[in-house]
Design a protein around this nucleic acid. Structure first.
Lengths: 117, 117
DNA sequence: GTCAAACTACGAGGACTCTCGTACAATGAG
DNA sequence: CTCATTGTACGAGAGTCCTCGTAGTTTGAC
């Protein structure tokens, strides 16, 4: 259809107050999603889904980004054919001070630790 | 049997180096287990399983404590008929500095937030 | 209009999770 | 020994999760 009515290509995000710690921890407990969050934090801005080189198919990639969005970890928006992703840093830091940074730090430490074969 | 051979009533714990961030985050992403960890942190010491008043049966309680132990979050040991539980603070702080405290802080903040009906 | 790129929707399989009930084992008190 | 307390083992059901393949939509470039 050509009538791009409002909401046609819009994505549902939980409001800040609706974000739940349990859901955030669950979202971060998957290796694929954790690596995505790590990249997003390093980029410090928007990245398209196609930027990520994940060890899963496109379908599964869509699934993981949806989990990240619905848990409140990332903000998503369409831009042309791409879907841009950004960490919801302000929201997460306001709700759970220090949590995101300590998870990111822990993930980096563990990556270093496991590299030392 | 009366021959209490070594390992008879011993519990398997992951070594510090075997603790995985993903497993810890998953363990903490369940409401029942998160409340247990909150109580253990407040107690700052050992607590028997029977101390906790969880909204699940004994079987399910056993399951949740096993998840916490196998992920490396808690240390367990039998003492008489009781099974004592303690947070593995030193290990967690060494592996993932600040993580446990920020999760605990986030959990308390969210509890306060959700109480304000 | 045609085409490629990016992403989605749907359905499905297999694994894991949370939950329970029942029956059982280990311990310490009497 | 008997008994109550504490926790386990086992099996099972319902639900969720991660994964995929195939077919489709949306967009922008040509």
């Amino acid at each position: 259809m050509t009538t791009a009515a409002l909401g046609s290509r819009t994505l549902a995000h939980p409001a800040r107050d609706a974000v739940r710690l349990e859901a955030v921890l669950h979202a971060l407990s998957d290796p694929v999603r954790l690596s995505v969050v790590l990249d997003l934090a390093a980029a410090d801005g928007e990245l398209p889904c196609s930027y990520f080189d994940l060890p899963v198919t496109k379908s599964t990639t869509t699934h993981h980004f949806r989990v990240l969005r619905e848990s409140g970890v990332v903000q998503q928006a369409y831009r042309g054919t791409a879907k841009m992703n950004a960490l919801r840093r302000a929201d997460l830091d306001a709700l759970f001070p220090g949590l995101l940074d300590s998870v990111l730090g822990a993930a980096r430490l563990q990556a270093d630790r496991l590299e030392h074969v």
